[in-house]
Write a protein that binds this DNA or RNA. Structure first.
Length: 238
DNA sequence: CGCCAGGGCCTCA
DNA sequence: TGAGGCCATGGC
């Protein structure tokens, strides 16, 4: 395999083209400018200390479910609606009526399914606090997450990478499209296989893992929509 | 308008 | 174990 097509090389090209993406977006980012405390929504470029609270970690988990096969723009309003209904704590969400949750998250689509999924994850975190889970090895957390209905490989890896800050590479549809279109992989590659291939090259650096996935989504949105692919490969090819 | 979105579960070969 | 159907609203 050409050295210039290594995953690191593509990462560098994406980063120089788009800059840091600041994933995962959380709704209340505290930033200090001099003496004043700024609260702003959304992204947090170059701030890799987040999440800083259990609520922010929980928010990332909820967002990871809500964004499944859905435009991210629908997620913050849904999270806000859940918050306004007082459902932003695992204890509350776990006991809420499905219909009440569904109403709050309606705009994200698949709302009946996702309402159930959110309750599952709420019950999980009620049982296993973050502070306990994060002590466990990555693979043990991952296996526990994968047992929850509604959490598949990608969602589990998003939660691991952005909520638990564990170096678990996230594979999504854009990742497969981009790397297969560039000739690095076969488009029929399995999730597990591609994840292993990428992780075997990348050193376990949190910022790289976090930004790489975000950059692939950024680039994918611009050039790798379902059909037909644009000419985004010109940016990445040697 | 029609296509698509930062998937995952279930079923059936 | 993999392909296919299903879930569903909102953005552009």
């Amino acid at each position: 395999m050409s050295r210039k097509r290594s995953f690191y090389n593509i990462y560098r090209k994406l980063m120089s083209a788009y800059g840091p993406q600041g994933w995962w977006p959380v709704s209340t980012v505290k930033m200090t400018a001099g003496d004043t405390l700024l609260l702003r929504d959304g992204y947090h470029p170059r701030n890799y200390t987040l999440p800083e609270s259990d609520e922010q970690r929980f928010e990332i988990c909820l967002g990871a479910i809500l964004v499944q096969n859905t435009n991210w723009l629908n997620v913050p309003p849904a999270l806000k609606a859940l918050r306004q209904k007082g459902l932003f704590l695992p204890d509350k969400l776990a006991e809420a009526e499905n219909q009440q949750i569904a109403l709050a998250i309606k705009r994200c689509g698949y709302y009946n399914q996702k309402a159930r999924y959110l309750k599952h994850i709420a019950k999980f975190f009620r049982l296993h606090p973050f502070s306990e889970l994060e002590q466990e090895p990555l693979d043990e957390i991952r296996n526990k997450l994968l047992k929850i209905k509604g959490i598949g490989p990608e969602t589990a890896d998003c939660i691991l990478l952005y909520a638990f800050k564990k170096c678990s590479f996230v594979i999504d549809a854009y990742t497969v499209r981009i790397f297969s279109h560039l000739g690095l992989i076969d488009s029929a590659v399995s999730y597990h296989e591609l994840k292993g291939l990428i992780e075997s090259e990348l050193k376990p650096e949190l910022e790289v893992y976090q930004e790489y996935h975000a950059l692939l989504v950024c680039h994918g949105k611009l050039h790798y929509r379902r059909k037909p692919y644009g000419s985004g490969d010109q940016l990445l090819l040697p």
